[in-house]
Structures are given as structure tokens and as C-alpha cells.
Design a protein around this nucleic acid. Structure first.
Lengths: 274, 274
DNA sequence: GATCACTGTTCGGTAATACCGAACGAACGT
DNA sequence: ACGTTCGTTCGGTATTACCGAACAGTGATC
């Protein structure tokens, strides 16, 4: 549940019914794709059926929810598509990144994503899917773990070891696969490699069989604004292809850096300075 | 289908504070891109500052809103990106259409959009922008007027004149440019042309200088599920290019029809049967 | 066919709470 | 140093959001 992971002291000026309604939306968002019924929602929400019904009706009125034809299951509505589109357009990054994502997608046929740097964690804001049936688990709008993704490691590589340690202190380093880096020293070593190459690699560290290459771009102040990354099936990517892909992603990220008024970081052989 | 129209009785089972909160989100969504302050929101909402503040804080807690760095202006937050993405992914159409949109975009360099048929009106759910600086007014998630867009006319062309008339009775035929079709008979004539060609054309009927080509796809039951359309600047499109583009869009739509388990409509020379 | 368990929906009563108004310090722009 | 506007805080009160009970349908099981 995502309602308890807010230990901040914001609980003071919150509107209870609105809080409940947004939790309801979250329950539907993390529920099955074919939606949930009022009774199921009421159970998960811990409220009565009538209350849940009233909340759902109000959300329905604004098209935040949508009712499936057979029966009465609630899904997320189309108003959220509109609002999400507006929200993403508000970020100038999205407009800048979109053509770059399409370009890499056209050249490689892989799934390409753009993320922003959210306090050291990658938060994906845009995505261009690979053609074909394979779809990767790639939700937008939620911060991902930094130590298991190429996007996350590309961000961390722009920071000092001290900063990296403070971020990892919050997120931890949970193991996802046999290849997951689970020690701080192992991560530091990998980040040094990232700085040398100019791009980060996720070699089945998040999902078995999934390979990822990512590179960071920087704003005018020189701080890491975000990343772009390419995701594919490991067996489809021979070693040479990875090097070419890494170079492509790195240069594309450098292009975004220049569009943001920044200057691409040169490849370094030593640790980053404070 | 059973979608009652706007002039519904103000629903009886609405939660007041939630209603206010969603109106607040809408106000921000239709406001300036750099956001609104609490005082401005309170004025437009017709509520006190303290109430507005509490609502905004709660929405902030769930990342429905976001605060701009300089000052305290509220923007739409990134949670809406996530929810919009989930909402669109819930529609199987979006997953099917995405590679097709990219394909046409790669071939033509134009802005390509997919819409679903929302009671005879096109509701855009996905978009691939043209590379370059030009951005068309192309919001997602809101139903557009059917008589001024190629997507709308492609939908209407799949219906009988009687059905078209009943839809136009609701939306009206407001004039947008000098080329806008404003009479029912004129629309019927144009729709007959659409059925002959297999694709619809918007020749500066919505915006001056903007040209559009769209075609409908159909589900297994043979009813129009939605459209794909390409948008560009008129002077960039000579007559022959329009014919090629129309054929491309039509064939791409036919491909989606087949993926939906339907059979593409053959080009007709007479009116559509009931 | 009748029972059961379940659903979505309706409605009244009441305790909770969402709202307002006033007041605070701070930040601008006179 | 002025006046104005901002965001934020807090207490009191009447609004209202909540619950529980009861209704009509549906589908499965006996």
C-alpha cells in the first residue's frame, strides 16, 4: 500500500474524505486491469459500501473512473489521461526528450524511456515501446530503485560516493535477481565503470533476462536532470551491440544536455569531485 | 451507450469536498502552465483560502499536485502521469495502436494520433508528435468536435445519415474557419466522399493552415472502434502527397481492424446500409 | 423453483469534520 | 516605513460525510 509510506508530518491539514478518495483511486490503479467492484473497494478501503459508493460516483462524475460494460467494475477513467498528458507537457523535459526517444527506438527497435532525477532516483515520465508483443514492466510516474536500473545507476554516477551512500541509506539495496549489486562497495565499483564508459548497464540485475543501457543528461547548472535508457532481451544483444547501443544512448543524452543549455560531462578516469 | 448527457441532475450521491477538490484540479489543468497560487485558486473555486489550502495540501500529499520552485504555485503532479498511463494501458486499443502510430510517424514525419469512438465523437488517447518545433493543439482525453476533424468525420462516415444527424444535434456545427462545413447537407456530401476514398480529410476546417487525414478502424462486431489520423501543415502537403498519405492511413487503420478481429469495410459507392 | 449469498443502490440519523473567518509573519512594490 | 498581498495557522460551529439498515436484482447451489 502506498498510503503508509508518507512518514512526513503532512497529516495536519489533510481533508479526510479527499484522502479516502485518492486512496480509492490508488487501489484501483494497483488492482487488476479489469477493475474492481464497489464491495471490493469498500473492503480494501476500510469504509462502508455506501461511503465508497458515494466517493466512486463523484469520481465517476469527473471521469476519473470508468465503468466496464459487463457488471459494474470501476477502472481508471479517461480524465486521468488528459491530466497526465498536461502534467507531462508541463515538464519541458518531456517535449525535448520525445523526438530523441523515437529516434533511438527507430534505430534499435528497443523500448526507450526517459526519466527525471527525483532525489537520486529515476522517475520515468515517457516511454516508447518496442514493436511486437513483448512489453516490459515500465510504469510511468513512480520512482524506481536506483541500484538495479541503468537509469538509476546513470544518475548515481553523477554524484559523489557520499551522496550515493545517503540515497542508498533511504532506499536500501534489496536483491532482485542473482546479478543484483547488494553491497555499497560493489555499487561504487560499478559506478566508477559507468563514469569511464559514459553509460550505465543493467545486466539482468532487476529482471532475469532483461538488459538495460542508460545515460544521464545534465542541465545548465551541471546537475543531473534525468536519463534516457534502452531496454531489451539479453540474448538479443551480443557484446558488440551493447557497446554500440551504449555509445548511441550516451550521445543522445549528450544531445539533450546541449538542448538544456548544459555541457556534456567528459569521460573521467578518476572519481567525481565534490 | 448508456452515457447520459451533461444536463443530468446534479448527482445526489456526490461528496462535496471531493467535488471541490476535483474542480480544483480542473482549474489548474486549464490554467497557465506555470501554475496557480493558493489565493488565485481560492478565488476561482469560490472557497476560502484556508479550505483551498487544505485541499491543495492533501492533493500534494498524493502527488496529484506539484509546487514550482520559485514561489508557491501549484501545477499538476506526476501521479497523474502514472494514473493516465495506467488508464490508457487499460484500453487494449492503446497497446495495439502505438506501434502503428510510430510506423506512420517514421514514414511521414507528421503528428499521428489515435482516437476512440466516444458516442460519435473522437476522443484522442495517444499521440506521437512530429519532430521539430511545431506542436499542434492536441490534447488527450477530451472529446473533440466531429464535424471539423478528420478523425471525427471518419467516425461519422461509418454511420447512417440519421445517426449522424442525431449526433450533430447534440454537438452543433460551430464554425471554426472559413472552410468549416456548417450545414448538414454539406456534411453528408463530404461523408459520402469519405466512404468513397476510405479516408477523411480536414482541409483547414478546424485551424487555418492545418491539414489532417484520418481513417477509421472497426472491431469484431463491425462497429467503428476509433480512428488514426495524421496532422501537418497544409503547404507542406502537395496533392499527390495527400493521396499517398490517405492510402497509408487507410491501410494502417485496416491493419488495426484486422488485429481487433474485424474485417475492413470495403469502399462503397452508395450510402451505408443500416 | 426456492433458497442463499452476493451484488449495487437508496435513505435517514448523528457524530464527526470540513468549512470559514480572523490573525499571524513574511515578502514585495510602492 | 508604508500598505498590500502572500502563505500559513488555529479555533468554533454548522454543515456534511459517514455508517448501518433495507431495498431490488442477479447467479449459483441445492
Amino acid at each position: 500500500m502506498t498510503n503508509a509510506d508518507r512518514p512526513e508530518t503532512l497529516a495536519r491539514y489533510t481533508v479526510g474524505s479527499l484522502h479516502r478518495a485518492l486512496r480509492l483511486v490508488d487501489i484501483i490503479a494497483s488492482g487488476p486491469v479489469d477493475g474492481l467492484t464497489v464491495s471490493e473497494l469498500a473492503r480494501q478501503l476500510g469504509a462502508s459500501k455506501s461511503t465508497t459508493f458515494a466517493l466512486a460516483r463523484t469520481l465517476l462524475e469527473f471521469n476519473y473512473l470508468r465503468i466496464l460494460e459487463p457488471g459494474t467494475r470501476y477502472q481508471l477513467g479517461l480524465a486521468l489521461v488528459r491530466l497526465g498528458d498536461i502534467s507531462a507537457s508541463g515538464l519541458p523535459l518531456a517535449a525535448i526528450c520525445q523526438p530523441v526517444l523515437h529516434d533511438i527506438n527507430a534505430k534499435t527497435g528497443l523500448t526507450i524511456r526517459a526519466a527525471i532525477n527525483e532525489n537520486g532516483r529515476p522517475l520515468f515520465i515517457e516511454r516508447v515501446d518496442a514493436p511486437g508483443a513483448i512489453r516490459f514492466h515500465a510504469p510511468l510516474g513512480v520512482p524506481e530503485l536506483p541500484h538495479v536500473s541503468s537509469a538509476g545507476k546513470a544518475i548515481l554516477a553523477s554524484m559523489t560516493d557520499r551522496e550515493v551512500a545517503s540515497i542508498i541509506a533511504v532506499t536500501g539495496m534489496p536483491r532482485r535477481t542473482a546479478n543484483t549489486i547488494t553491497t555499497l562497495q560493489g555499487l561504487f565499483d560499478d559506478l566508477a565503470e559507468v563514469r569511464r564508459r559514459g553509460y550505465a548497464v543493467d545486466d539482468e540485475e532487476d529482471f532475469d533476462g532483461v538488459f538495460c543501457v542508460g545515460a544521464a543528461f545534465f542541465d545548465h547548472s551541471g546537475s543531473c536532470a534525468g536519463t534516457i535508457s534502452a531496454t531489451g532481451i539479453k540474448r538479443d544483444l551480443p557484446e558488440q551491440a551493447v557497446r554500440d547501443l551504449g555509445a548511441l544512448v550516451r550521445e543522445s543524452a549528450n544531445g539533450i544536455t546541449r538542448m538544456l543549455g548544459g555541457t556534456p560531462r567528459e569521460l573521467v578516469t578518476t572519481a567525481v569531485t565534490t
